[in-house]
């Protein structure tokens, strides 16, 4: 990874565990949990008609 003393930006990003932690929790929370909860909360209630 280290070539002639230079650390690549990708290595800096991969080494930042706290950034990875934040993204790893935020992305599924937004796209799976929050989006899903919004859809379910806005689903219309069924109306039962007839006997």
């Amino acid at each position: 990874m280290k070539e002639e003393g230079k650390i690549s930006n990708w290595q800096i990003f991969f080494d930042d565990i706290s950034m990875l932690f934040f993204l790893g929790v935020a992305i599924p929370t937004i796209f799976y949990v929050i989006w899903g909860v919004m859809e379910l909360a806005n689903a219309p209630t069924a109306v039962i008609t007839g006997p």
């Binding site: 990708w10 991969f14 990875l20 993204l23 790893g24 992305i27 599924p28 796209f31 799976y32």
Partner: peptide
């Protein structure tokens, strides 16, 4: 390592 990062970012969406 890139592959592990892809896991971190996207694997939970498979739920």
């Amino acid at each position: 390592r890139s592959a592990f990062v892809l896991y971190i970012l996207f694997i939970n969406l498979a739920s």
